[in-house]
Nucleic acid binder design. Structure first.
Length: 744
DNA sequence: AAGAGTTAGACG
DNA sequence: GTCTAACTCTTC
């Protein structure tokens, strides 16, 4: 008797090996002797399977492997969902590798690579994008027939009068509250609804060409000269034109008929970025980011898989998209933390992208003005190609950094008189000023004036931040919010003191100080609505505001031509961070914010208000810039065997009962210490996480460190089975963070 | 993850 | 003894 044919499927859930299913009876009987060909009909296909008493959507990741499960225990799968596989063998190999490197169930990884619509079983083919257009009747209606006072209505109708079809996302980008009007006009017969192709026909912006300077051309030539896989670090100061290098490279790869994937940080993807790419390349660029709805994501995914578009510009999750014919990967702002997924499947998009390029044997380019120590080390050791752009475009001067020693000075709302004076001068000279403060809200602490009670979050080990706009207390870690108490919960007194500065308070103070100047605050609170960040950044760029107040969301990518002075407040805290990467992060932030200034004709100045003017980190940064700082930092890291000279794995635990959390980690530690290891491996902890309690759970962690990725993986692999079998493993929340970025 | 199965505790 | 809430276990 022949053994029954079976397939292995990945489905979401904590399944450490794929589940096996038998084939449906009618299919099994047809199975030919050609197993190779037969497996092609299953591998990577989407199937519906019975699971418990429900039906689940899964992806076939293995064929006829003997997993030792008795055939009598298996159920037959129900059916295929599509006429073709969604993933090819290369895609699957990559997903397998990601799952094993990050110790994530394969099903979760496969689902991360699928748009939601496909995860829940929607058909692969897209219904097309709904658009609205003027009807024959509508063409007889001119704007003048609408009420003269209905400005919004007139503007919207004018848009349709150009006889262009508008999709909901296009309307969303240009208008607010258009739905009721469009609905009414459809009912009146002025507009007709139609369904177009999934990739809406965009009109391309006018062609913009540029020439490369010597450095840029050399960088492009080096990448082009590489064969197969090679990773390059493009280390270019702000304003040195990294994008021009990307575009030249992309153009070459497109000419070979291959596709390109460009990854950017979460908030770095603006319509302007995509438009700039389209203007140069003269072909549609497919964007993939959190602002899209399910159907748009599905469309983007499908268009790349089908090879109907050549360029994708996306945030970290775009790296899982199956491409028809990928020829080049680019990752911009390489140092940016948003490439690390911090919850659920904790992957690092930078590292996965490199691995993917390696598996496909294609080049990958990482760009940054402030590269991570990991990438710099790889570049210096020759693992990566090292490309440098040291000149700013159009002879723009680099910003000059100055420390503003405020020791002993009287500070008003955190600002020194010297800083205010400099701001006045810069404004008087017609410049724009940015005040950088990386803390939103009004004040980080609210204190009772009579008893000292302070608002702290009942779910977390953190203070509540006072927000004046909503007159409430908010926890910035779990989202908890309560109205500001009328009276102190402890003593009943009604007077409170707001301690410390946030951007809200700074805005209030600067409004008093500069009554004749316009002020624009850009932080998460003022940009909550969709599209409002782009809108505010646009205002800032056009010079609509004299004074900008911003948190770190303003540090990324944007440039403000009229900006001549940047004042940075409260950077000092980065000097004393518990995390060994604290100084690196601070230096990156400083250099990135400084890079916002003086990109046009006027040189920019950056003032760093500090109580630690002699601190070596500042001194090093001022004297030798980021490169000098990086050299020092790498030396320190090497002495301490810290990344990039060592590799880390963090076991994180969250439990309502802190004893269980510690007991579980102690058990893991005992297991680890019992493993005979050939190379130096260390384990630290358990210790409490940076925030000991969050959302009512106590958080502890255990840090593993080893000299190589391989020995670290082997060490964990040796105990993994025992850890998963531990009685506490199923009773508390825990996760593994490979290459953690926040370890303190 | 999440539903079914299992056990322990509350009640009278 | 029953009823219910918490806890465990399994999933092809």
């Amino acid at each position: 008797m022949t053994p029954s044919l079976r397939v292995q499927v990945a489905l979401p859930g904590p399944f450490w090996q794929p589940l096996s299913y038998l084939l449906p009876d009618d299919v099994a009987n047809q199975a030919t002797v050609d197993l190779q060909a037969w497996s092609q009909g299953w591998l990577g296909w989407r199937v519906a399977v019975p699971f418990r008493n429900q039906t689940k959507i899964a992806v076939v990741v293995g064929v006829n492997q003997d997993d030792g499960v008795d055939a009598s225990k298996l159920k037959p799968l129900l059916h295929k969902l599509d006429d073709e596989p969604l993933f090819n063998a290369q895609d699957l190999a990559f997903l397998h590798w990601a799952a094993s490197y990050y110790h994530e169930p394969l099903g979760e990884v496969v689902m991360a690579a699928l748009p939601k619509r496909l995860r829940v079983g929607k058909p692969l083919s897209l219904p097309g994008v709904v658009t609205w257009q003027r009807s024959v009747l509508g063409q007889t209606v001119s704007v003048d027939q609408l009420s003269a006072r209905a400005h919004k209505q007139r503007a919207l109708w004018q848009a349709f009068c150009d006889d262009q079809a508008w999709s909901s996302s296009q309307l969303n980008a240009a208008f607010s509250q258009w739905q009721p009007l469009v609905k009414r006009w459809v009912e009146q017969g002025w507009l007709v609804v139609s369904e177009g192709a999934c990739l809406a026909q965009k009109t391309l912006p006018a062609s913009v060409r540029h020439s490369l300077n010597e450095e840029q051309a050399a960088a492009v030539a080096q990448v082009q000269a590489s064969k197969g896989f090679r990773c390059f670090l493009l280390d270019g100061v702000t304003g040195s034109g990294k994008t021009e290098v990307y575009l030249a490279l992309i153009e070459q790869v497109l000419a070979q008929g291959k596709q390109v994937l460009v990854l950017v940080p979460e908030i770095g993807l603006t319509p302007q970025t995509a438009a700039r790419f389209e203007a140069y390349l003269q072909q549609p660029v497919v964007a993939l980011h959190s602002g899209l709805n399910d159907q748009e994501r599905h469309c983007a995914w499908q268009v790349m898989r089908r090879g109907e578009a050549q360029v994708m510009l996306g945030t970290r999750s775009a790296l899982f998209t199956p491409f028809a014919n990928l020829g080049l990967c680019i990752l911009d702002e390489e140092h940016d933390l948003s490439f690390k997924q911090q919850d659920g499947f904790r992957y690092y998009a930078r590292d996965l992208l490199i691995r993917r390029a390696q598996m496909l044997q294609i080049p990958v380019v990482l760009g940054s003005a402030t590269p991570s120590m990991e990438s710099l080390h790889n570049a210096q050791s020759g693992r990566f190609g090292y490309l440098r752009l040291s000149q700013r475009a159009a002879n723009a001067q680099p910003p000059q950094l100055r420390l503003l020693d405020v020791r002993g000075d009287r500070l008003q709302e955190g600002l020194s008189n010297k800083a205010l004076h400099q701001m006045r001068e810069a404004l008087a000279a017609g410049g724009q000023v940015l005040v950088f403060l990386n803390r939103r809200g009004f004040a980080p602490v609210l204190l009772c004036h009579s008893c000292g009670w302070q608002g702290s979050c009942s779910h977390c080990d953190a203070n509540l931040t006072y927000h004046q706009a909503s007159d409430s207390l908010k926890c910035h870690h779990c989202g908890f919010q309560q109205p500001k108490p009328k009276a102190c919960p402890a003593c009943g007194a009604t007077q409170f003191v707001a301690l410390g500065q946030g951007t809200e308070r700074l805005e209030q103070f600067l409004t008093q100080q500069f009554p004749t100047h316009s002020i624009l605050r850009i932080d998460r609170d003022t940009t909550r609505l969709k599209g409002s960040l782009a809108e505010k950044v646009g205002q800032a760029r056009d010079g609509a505001a004299d004074i900008l107040i911003g948190t770190q969301m303003l540090a990324k990518g944007h440039h403000f031509p009229k900006l001549t002075l940047v004042v940075m407040l409260d950077l000092d805290q980065g000097l004393f961070s518990v995390d060994f990467r604290g100084a690196e992060r601070m230096a990156q932030l400083l250099v990135q914010v400084a890079g916002r200034a003086g990109r046009a004709s006027q040189p920019g100045r950056v003032l760093i208000q500090t109580h630690q003017p002699e601190h070596p980190t500042y001194q090093q940064l001022l004297r030798e810039g980021y490169a000098g700082f990086a050299a020092d930092t790498l030396r320190d890291r090497q002495l301490a065997n810290l990344p990039p000279f060592g590799f880390q794995l963090l076991v994180r635990v969250e439990a309502v009962d802190s004893n269980q959390a510690v007991a579980f980690l102690e058990a893991i530690k005992d297991l680890l210490l019992a493993v005979p290891v050939s190379q130096p491996c260390e384990v630290w902890g358990p210790v409490t996480a940076p925030m000991a309690k969050r959302q009512n759970r106590w958080r502890y962690q255990l840090l593993l460190q080893a000299e190589t990725r391989g020995s670290l993986q082997a060490w964990w692999q040796a105990v993994a089975a025992d850890v998963y079998a531990h009685p506490l493993a199923n009773r508390i929340r825990w996760s593994i963070d490979v290459d953690p970025q926040e370890t303190s």
